[in-house]
């Protein structure tokens, strides 16, 4: 009983807070002709994330601030945005990892049509994702209707690219995608890679043919922006290079 009293008496030290300045690129299509930068001062803790700052702004300062977020824990891929010039997930970027002596710049990801504030139209991104047939392609059912057997080694071959959450951080960091909206972009190639190197899949030929297009993998300039941007740590540029080699070989 006495132990409970002493531990209750021990008041946890208040966590230090500080004021961080955020400069957010706002755009309201009903009012603005051009996007404009607006700054907010927010009371933050070192353990807070950029998403917490956006919440605080939306809930306490300006309810019109618009952004996407769903799970808020780095799994759904809704809140990719450009933070201090780098594509990051707002829910995975901690304040303590940023230099708060300077303002923190937050804007929507580049290369996709801006709809409002931090929201872009993701349809062109999903269109190119769709066009690589991102699903298991098989000729028919297996014998006796049994499962398709795969060894751990065969599974490990494409493990890295199964981690993609389709947040568009890679594709919207790609300088080729910025200037050429026709390019498939890293994310679509990553998701093609996931099935091309899957031992159970039989559609590799179709996908390699699609990516051998003028706007396919050959547009990749190996700038590594995508690998740098990926919040899941996928080796995107390596995956693209493996697809290039698969096209040259004619098979995975």
């Amino acid at each position: 009983m006495s132990t409970a009293v002493t531990s209750a008496a021990k008041v946890p030290e208040p966590i230090a807070t500080f004021t961080a300045t955020f400069i957010i690129r706002r755009f309201d299509p009903e009012v603005d002709e051009e996007p404009r930068w607006q700054d907010f001062d927010v009371e933050m803790r070192a353990t807070d994330r950029i998403l917490d700052a956006l919440h605080k702004i939306k809930w306490e300062q300006d309810g019109s601030l618009t952004f996407r977020r769903s799970c808020a824990h780095g799994v759904c891929g809704s809140d990719a945005m450009r933070i201090n010039g780098k594509n990051r997930l707002a829910c995975k970027t901690l304040i303590k990892d940023l230099d708060i002596s300077k303002p923190i710049y937050v804007e929507a990801i580049k290369g996709l049509p801006l709809e409002k504030d931090l929201i872009v139209d993701m349809e062109p991104f999903f269109d190119s994702f769709r066009s690589v047939n991102p699903f298991l392609m098989v000729a028919g059912p297996t014998k006796d209707g049994k499962e398709r057997v795969q060894s751990p080694v065969e599974r490990a071959r494409f493990d890295d690219t199964t981690k993609c959450i389709l947040c568009a951080a890679c594709t919207s960091s790609c300088p080729v995608f910025w200037t050429d909206g026709q390019y498939f972009g890293p994310a679509a190639i990553v998701n093609a890679h996931r099935f091309i190197f899957d031992s159970r899949d039989e559609g590799a030929k179709v996908r390699l043919d699609i990516l051998n297009d003028k706007e396919g993998v050959w547009r990749c300039r190996t700038t590594f922006n995508c690998t740098d941007a990926c919040p899941r740590g996928i080796q995107v540029t390596q995956a693209i290079a493996e697809v290039k080699m698969a096209i040259l070989r004619g098979k995975p």
Partner: peptide
């Protein structure tokens, strides 16, 4: 056995074969 049809896609549609793939050979070169 019915397979789900491939989704609507501008690229996946059957394309005619066009001569040499310059982008590929340019990359190899």
């Amino acid at each position: 056995m019915s397979l789900i049809e491939a989704p609507r896609s501008k690229v996946a549609s059957p394309r005619k074969k066009r001569g040499i793939n310059w982008e590929k050979w340019g990359w190899i070169y």
